[in-house]
Design a protein around this nucleic acid. Structure first.
Lengths: 356, 356
DNA sequence: GGTGTTTTGAGGTACGCAACTCATTTTGAG
DNA sequence: CTCAAAATGAGTTGCGTACCTCAAAACACC
């Protein structure tokens, strides 16, 4: 009736006895210290394997004494999503303190490859781990690889550099996110046919490009009644996003769906509202006629969802990302296995009634 | 440019000096041992507060020596969702071992209040923490309170007993889940008007009742064109669910939406498919005409989503629930604060393109 | 066999706390 | 003021590991 899930824990002493060597030798093997014959190394490692030995985390942590230093390299501009990640890191403060972890925020211009690469280089050697919101660029890739070679654990955050040798990526699959947005716009638009607009920050950003790709994929294959208009670029700015969208809405009367890929949500909503007022075309339910899907749950998008202006937000949980990045860095630094399932960031569909 | 998020860690010795007492007295206060004057207790506690002192987790863990025992009281029947939770607990095995945690699974008939209460009573005293999938019933409530009084930490899992003194609930807000389901059925049904069917396990189950409540709330207030038919009870069994639904589908030709509140999904899908075949009414996109929203991502619902038979699944992440329950029990046992944001279980909307 | 080098063993110390003992001081009741 | 009880200080041990030193043993090479 009762089933136990845990093995009895061995200690280093047990491993030493098993392998027929002294504690000192096991210690040398465990920490890759020199002065052990290859044959002995093999014997010790065999004993460790055989017993699935894992060092007692608490004891190891206590013994090593010095704190670990992690750096979070984040965009310097005022990006609400990034600010949320930083806020959640702040909330972890007590958690970090009792584990003797030092987390430092490093603000930099992540959109300028050379600046970002330069920042990463200054970090080398000083940190046990680095989490970075990275731009995918050869210079950045090289800087990441240098960090890895120096022994620093590196995770990319939100935006990946798959071609680098970073140890882990904490973020969503942006193609799937775009597909999800497409499916939502298509399904929520109902039987209607018409045009669909896309507002992005820039098609040069990897994550935006991937989202657009996924979105178009779904629209093309599943919603033949809807035609996607050329992508508008709003540079993630409110004013510019509003302008370009307003112009487009003026030109096409039959726009039934809108996908806002990045930020600039305020501007997008404004353009949409102005149009609705002009048309005097708010439906009875108080909902805008144009299906509006965007990204991330912020103060603003939360309000838009509650008002019915926005129909759904594709979200990646910033708290989860912050904690996952720290946990992954810690596990990497300790040599512990990573709970992939736990650290995976999901694509959340957030509508009015399941607002977190 | 670089901002540090962590405080420098104090030790018990520092607190002792601050409070002007010896280590022994601090220890007595910290562990509620007798023999300390109230005034001294206050001084020590003040010093602890003032410095936001938290014992070094690793050192405390190492010193206490004995392992902690947690019990998970789970339904004995073959419930896919519960099996997933158990599977994820199994995956944590290494994580648990390293932290000297013993987790035991206790299978019992959670639907029989007296049996469940009896099982909980046998656990008293032997465990540091208990997670239980609880039925809300006076006998169960009393058993939970007894456990709490005995010093055991108790969390309710998936299904809550809010009137008990359990320390924490790990699960979703089922009313909000029902509302979300309602919004999805309504929106995905588009402009259509017609009837909506509900299949539940039993209206006597608290979680099912709450979901239905939320669902009806949204339907009534936002989708006046849709009328909800009386709830069918399928007892979470495939055969029975199929029968009752098939009968209903035969009687009403204008059913445009279906909400499956609990399990029995296989049967529900079968009834729906048979109807579609009869009507020869599959749409061009291969999608069933009836909007079908259910709960939980299992092997079955995953297939149904991919096939387009099912339109959305409301899901609570079983892996997250398993890990959150363990983490909460551990934090409670250690007297650490709980990261509420982290342990909160979200209502996930899962459609084909964001299947986890 | 002798030399120098490499490998191994033995042991210690420190980490911060829990849990305990025992001696000493303080306190309050009579 | 006395004496027992209560409160407090001082100290020890152990948890499992990291990291270090020093000496002994094993080995390679000529």
């Amino acid at each position: 009736m009762a089933e136990t899930l845990t093995a009895t824990a061995l200690t280093l002493k047990d491993i030493a006895r098993e392998a027929g060597v002294s504690l000192a030798t096991v210690d040398r093997v465990l920490h890759n210290r020199p002065g052990v014959r290859p044959d002995t190394v093999r014997r010790v490692k065999a004993a460790i394997e055989r017993n699935a030995f894992q060092p007692h985390v608490a004891a190891a942590e206590l013994a090593r004494g010095r704190a670990r230093r992690f750096a979070f390299v984040m965009p310097s501009g005022p990006n609400p999503f990034m600010q949320q990640i930083e806020a959640y890191l702040g909330e972890m403060s007590a958690w970090l303190t009792v584990r003797r972890l030092n987390v430092e925020l490093v603000a930099t211009d992540v959109f300028d490859p050379s600046v970002l690469a330069g920042t990463l280089e200054t970090l080398s050697g000083d940190y046990d781990g680095v989490a970075v919101v990275a731009l995918d660029h050869p210079g950045v890739r090289a800087a990441i690889n240098d960090l890895v070679d120096a022994g620093t654990k590196v995770v990319t955050l939100v935006s990946d550099v798959p071609s680098s040798r970073r140890h882990h990526y904490v973020g969503i699959d942006n193609i799937a996110a775009g597909r999800t947005a497409g499916a939502l716009v298509g399904r929520l638009a109902g039987q209607k046919s018409g045009k669909v607009a896309i507002v992005a920050g820039s098609q040069g950003l990897r994550d935006h490009a991937e989202r657009i790709f996924g979105f178009n994929q779904v629209m093309a294959s599943e919603f033949p009644g809807l035609s996607v208009l050329p992508v508008l670029e709003g540079r993630d700015e409110d004013d510019r996003s509003e302008q370009v969208l307003a112009r487009l809405l003026g030109k096409h009367a039959d726009i039934v769906g809108l996908y806002n890929v990045g930020a600039g949500t305020q501007g997008v909503a404004k353009a949409l509202n102005d149009k609705a007022l002009n048309d005097k075309a708010l439906s009875d339910a108080g909902r805008n006629e144009v299906v509006f899907v965007g990204h991330d749950v912020t103060v603003l998008t939360r309000r838009l969802l509650l008002q019915g202006v926005m129909d759904a937000a594709i979200s990646q949980n910033p708290g989860h990302e912050a904690r996952a990045a720290v946990r992954v860095l810690l596990a990497l630094a300790r040599g512990e296995p990573i709970l992939r399932e736990q650290e995976k960031i999901r694509i959340d569909i957030v509508m009015r009634d399941n607002l977190p």
